[in-house]
Design a protein around this nucleic acid. Structure first.
Lengths: 167, 167
DNA sequence: AGGTGATGGTTGATACGTCAACCTGATCGG
DNA sequence: CCGATCAGGTTGACGTATCAACCATCACCT
């Protein structure tokens, strides 16, 4: 049974380590910027999702699904954000088990304050250094890889469009 | 002063969100696999760096530099690994302030056990789904972006070679 | 109605990463 | 030789992520 491990060759290692180095640094930088604005990356994600949702509220389940988070993570995250009054918890009319998170004015404010800085960071650290062609290549790469990373459907942005799904 | 924020257009959002989704899922999957083998991603990084170092030992400073970690992070990480006897701390002959981490037999063992699984994951979740051309594109993307992410020199893998540095 | 499993969420323990403060020993200017 | 500063590292507190265990409620079936 025990197949010999196929180690990475030079080119593969280049691709992998390059990718890892980039993604770790990127996350570090963007995280730092957000933290200076008083938010964690997770906070920011939640605020964006809520702000994009109709009524600025979302069931914890949907939230978890969109962010690809475990329910435990969602629960902790929302509790902490609630303590800081960035979100409010509201009950479900139909099913008392269900909980919703709703953006507070304070939360919306925090997002308005952080978003421009964050977007500027995304440009400065990342997008500014890619050609349009490289952006397209990256989208194709994500479309190739994502389906193999779990049961989650592709995020809406990558769904339609001209890119080829694999057989 | 206050330039209007340049929000992301459709293509930029595709590239960015696609990238983020991919990188978060990838990290989650690989982290899970490693955790099942009893190691965190950080543990694995340290073990690899030590195993690649001459004498299987590295000054904490060098270790931090290679992994791009803060000294605090290095310190905590090494302490925890030492408690599990994955590494050993040794002193510097010249400068008593300096500390070194050295791979223990137990650490080497853990790495031997985890490495094939990890590499298999890198293939299964990532490399297998990229064409050689996409691998090359990714390397170029990393080479374009990394220099703008901090003072750190490019990792050795990406340094030489035919890729074009930006002006 | 009464069980049974699925669904939605919470909780606690533990590990990890960050920051700020701190300590120790080297180094250097005078 | 003394004080200042720097380099290398440690520490503690805090926020965050993960897993496993748990609890409540719903949906279904008989």
């Amino acid at each position: 049974m025990s197949e010999q491990t196929q180690w990475l060759d030079r080119d593969e290692r280049r691709a992998w380590r390059g990718y890892v180095a980039m993604s770790e640094m990127l996350e570090a930088r963007l995280g730092q910027d957000l933290r200076k604005a008083g938010l964690s990356s997770a906070d920011y994600t939640v605020l964006v999702l809520l702000s994009e949702a109709p009524e600025r509220r979302l069931g914890l389940g949907e939230l978890g699904a969109e962010a690809q988070w475990s329910k435990s993570r969602v629960s902790h995250q929302i509790r902490r954000m609630q303590e800081r009054e960035l979100v409010e918890r509201t009950e479900d009319a139909d099913d008392p088990r269900r909980a919703h998170a709703e953006l507070t004015e304070r939360g919306a404010e925090a997002l308005r304050a952080a978003a421009p800085l964050h977007v500027a960071g995304v440009r400065r650290y990342f997008l500014d250094h890619l050609t349009r062609e490289q952006q397209t290549q990256l989208v194709e790469i994500a479309r190739s890889v994502l389906p193999h990373l779990g049961p989650a459907p592709l995020p809406p942005e990558l769904r339609e469009g001209k890119g080829g799904e694999e057989a």
